[in-house]
Design a binder for these strands. Sequence first.
DNA 1: TGCAAATAGTTCGCCCTCGAACTATCATGG
DNA 2: CCATGATAGTTCGAGGGCGAACTATTTGCA
Lengths: 148, 148
Amino acid sequence: MTKPNTQEIIARIARIHEGAHALIEAELKTRGLTGIVPAHGAILAFLFTQTRPVPIKAVVERVGRVKSTVTVMLNTLERHGYLTRIPCECDNRVIYVALTEKGRNLCPDFEAISERLLATVYGPMPARDRQTLLNLLDRVERNLQAAP
Amino acid sequence: MTKPNTQEIIARIARIHEGAHALIEAELKTRGLTGIVPAHGAILAFLFTQTRPVPIKAVVERVGRVKSTVTVMLNTLERHGYLTRIPCECDNRVIYVALTEKGRNLCPDFEAISERLLATVYGPMPARDRQTLLNLLDRVERNLQAAP
DNA sequence: TGCAAATAGTTCGCCCTCGAACTATCATGG
DNA sequence: CCATGATAGTTCGAGGGCGAACTATTTGCA
């Protein structure tokens, strides 16, 4: 049998991940933001930093999702009016995406939700413990990356 | 702006979660186990501990997923021959599920994969650090649970 | 020049995940 | 005894996530 106490770490991380997910969804709901789900966060965070249309390929590389997944999420965001696709003039294979006005308006909510999530996650934890936690998580992450 | 260094914790936890997911899928693949995905782990882990058929409701309560999600996963596991549904004699609303022979045969692989995952996650981390990490994660988890 | 390989996106099939609606079956109180 | 409500599962629709296959360009080299 696997020892429950040590095996616990994966389950705990999964629950934290889901808890963060739930908090974000709850915040989106109370703010009346429809058509947005937590997974869109990576795309939006990236697009907020861009001043001009960006190729879909760049989005794919940034958000850490597969092309087909990004295509679907962009479809959803486009359908809800948060962004638009713009064909590239010089290379017909390339399609740019850019936030619409409605999309840019998400930025304040996005930052507020991020802040609240962060405040909730850490709670009253002292700065030294936060740093310790980050370091230990980094070790774990590198262990996993080195594995396959 | 959200400070990147602190915001990092959520992303880091998400990456660890995904890394664990990837490791499990890779192990399943090399072992030639088809039809199984990491999400089935919770169901299988529960059923391994049961000696007799168990009502679906009990599965739902255990795995922390919604009824409809569990229905789908049970369908998949059943379709691949890992378990069977057995109607309850005394209460026609209830349906039991039980592992088949093929399902029970997954147990050794399941435990081996769990062990490898755990070993990978911690790597050479000393016991004291592991405990510290678990404690800090527990704090975070409780912070999130208390939030909504 | 012209054709093969690389590149950018989309589509498809499959799965998990949720919430809401639905079905069927008990259980209970009037 | 029977209507009303609680319970157990499934179905449905929408969406994320992946890999494989597909389309349409562009590039590069022979």
